[in-house]
Design a protein around this nucleic acid. Structure first.
Lengths: 279, 279
DNA sequence: ATAATAACTGACTGGTCAGTCACGTGTCAA
DNA sequence: TTGACACGTGACTGACCAGTCAGTTATTAT
């Protein structure tokens, strides 16, 4: 990521957080960065793609840190503590932006954003699930959905305080306080309320990619290229052909996809392909 | 409130919730209502004032219902249960709208909106405080800020599920589930984490009790008693009279308050009095 | 030094939208 | 029937803004 891009992400996320996405003009962003408006469009395709980049940048960082916990050598309790601390740190750091834009559909949310959001939620869920099981044992399995909802809620409650009071809380103390409350809750558990399906469908944001959709996308890009000798065109063509085969060979597709690495035009379709193959 | 205004509020809040405030044009709203754009401006001064009206409408309704709980004749536990149920009902009903505008300041928030928001938060805080004290006793006083933050968080967590899964949860069951968890948490409490000031400064909200509010509350209880010979009635009457005196004599009030110790009806007002005198 | 290329600029374009206003239209009393 | 008044309309205006592009400046290669 170039310095310029980083600068824009930095300033823009501040402005978005302060005034909202719609209320912040590209001009304001470029003014804050001390660059021209035209220059902005050398770094980002559009205002919306900037939003995506910001979200990608922040959520990648959070996902990485959450992932690290799982491989950390420490007691279950310490890892659980770290889980909270990291969330408080990262969310507090970018809270305004993340809270504002990710929670609700206040900003243009497209498929890609949703994909990333789902990934983030999924990772957080997965991490919390693992940590709870490590710490309290398999017997709480059935209570996981409720516990996760409650703990996320509690985190959210304190994050609001952190956001408004700016750093007035010690994250480690807070993490331990919450863990102690979790101990109490788990001690008193009887019957669960939520079933796993209810939690997972939360957000109703499952965007499965259909084959038809992919093939259509590929055709559209091919039409834009026109040149049948073009490397990208040929690669897309091969992928399209292969996908139509009920038992398509993944290696063929991945191979061809490597030819699309540098094609801006195919960026979107490549991302969709990756998600499709992982489904 | 005229039918026209109501119609606009109805349709607009749907549209705002679906697409956001900025992304919804007045034209879209008037189209949805089947009226002309000019007609819109007969009912509302501006798009922003519509937003305020919507918010006022919903929050007034919620505040009224929360206020009703405090004067409800039922066990502390049942009133606490109702507190949750009402929040789930009202917030779920207007969740999209409320969530959108509370969480992110994506829309123009002016002083009036903030005032209303503070009033809403204050009422919810006050109600929760009263209900918690009624149910668990004065000993939890010191834990109130933490409890309120956690409970609000937990409510928030389940509201998200309700919003996305649309009515898939039984609110009474859910309320009782949360109360049971609260029991557990309270059982295990040791040292509090938050101090009252930290919570109160959240969002710059101050919950000062006004004299007018107190006098109104006292009048309401007097009306419920009716019997002008009743000890509680007389005590409240004296307190009310004393409060109207700019240099009211605290000893008179405290003395009269001791007569209210055993009056369940006056519990709330006594607590408010204590807080008022300590201000 | 010069050419070639990359990086950058900001005036401009096409489009959207909140809010206005001159012009109906329906109603009701005189 | 008339005229006064409330209610309603939608074309219009001015402001704003995302995105473009012809032109300028900085950098690097020769």
């Amino acid at each position: 990521m170039s310095d310029k891009k980083m600068l824009i992400i930095e300033k823009a996320s501040e402005l978005f957080a302060k005034n909202g996405f719609g209320a912040t003009s590209v001009q304001e962003i470029t003014d804050a960065c001390g660059i021209s408006k035209g220059s902005f469009y050398l770094s980002f395709k559009s205002k919306e793609s900037l939003l995506f980049s910001i979200f990608e940048y922040f959520s990648t960082k959070l996902i990485d840190r959450l992932g690290d916990i799982l491989h950390m050598e420490a007691t279950a309790r310490n890892r659980f503590e770290q889980f909270f601390v990291i969330q408080f740190e990262e969310i507090a750091r970018h809270s305004d932006f993340i809270l504002m834009h990710m929670r609700e559909q206040a900003s243009p949310i497209n498929e890609e954003m949703l994909g990333l959001l789902n990934k983030l939620r999924g990772k957080a869920y997965e991490a919390m699930e693992n940590l709870l099981l490590d710490l309290y044992g398999e017997s709480i399995q059935i209570h996981l959905p409720d516990l996760i909802v409650m703990l996320n809620g509690i985190i959210h409650g304190y994050v609001e305080i952190i956001v408004f009071n700016k750093k007035m809380l010690n994250y480690t103390d807070l993490a331990n306080y919450i863990i102690e409350r979790t101990d109490s809750i788990i001690n008193g558990l009887t019957e669960p309320l939520l079933k796993k399906e209810q939690l997972l469908s939360t957000g109703g944001i499952t965007f499965s990619i259909t084959l038809e959709e992919l093939v259509k996308d590929i055709e559209m890009i091919k039409q834009q290229i026109q040149d049948t000798e073009d490397e990208v065109f040929i690669s897309l063509d091969v992928i399209g052909q292969e996908l139509l085969n009920p038992n398509f060979r993944k290696p063929v597709i991945s191979g061809m996809m490597s030819n699309l690495k540098n094609s801006e035009l195919s960026e979107g379709v490549v991302r969709k392909l990756v998600r499709f193959l992982n489904q």
